[in-house]
Amino acid sequence: MNLFRLAGDMTHLVSVVVLLLKIHTIKSCAGVSLKTQELYALVFAARYLDLFVHFVSLYNTVMKLVFLASSFSIVWYMRKHKIVRRTYDREHDTFRHHFIVLPCLVLALLINERFTFREVMWAFSIYLEAVAILPQLVLLQRTRNIDNLTGQYVFFLGAYRVLYILNWIYRYFTEPHFVHWISWIAGIVQTVLYADFFYYYIISWKNNVKLELPA
């Protein structure tokens, strides 16, 4: 495992911890999109079907379990927790997330590395992850006061994507046989979606003012 990959996994982990911290200690999910969180839970459920079939390493198994548990518990908190659910910004979280699940599934049936159940679900999870952030970005744009933790959550999630691309570039030169075009192309699309957010995040950080995205 190279440093970019490790740093990518760690920023991904930090993003989840930041979100859980906000939900668990502040008991608030204001500014957090439930739709995006539901999509991530689906992404991990579909991708980690191989959890008990295909063993890679202890690190891999533990991280998969962490991402599965954290994504489902975040959804649970936002839907079921007495206090947290009241802070959910339902009126602004209006992205029709169900309508992006089906196209991703169709795309996975058409473009996959092999036409087997697990491979199709893997491709589906890759396509879905690429667009899962959209409801969150839309919600951020509609939120007047983006709190620091929500901004940091999206920032770390975006950093994870950028680091994964550097990891693929590194792997391309060090392990030329290791190529997953599906995840590379979907990963680049996903990272581009963050570009706008990153631009405003860095400006607000440089000028030391509160993050606000233009409508």
Partner: peptide
Amino acid sequence: SSGSNPKDEL
């Protein structure tokens, strides 16, 4: 081919 590569990323 890429199809035979094991998937070791998260």
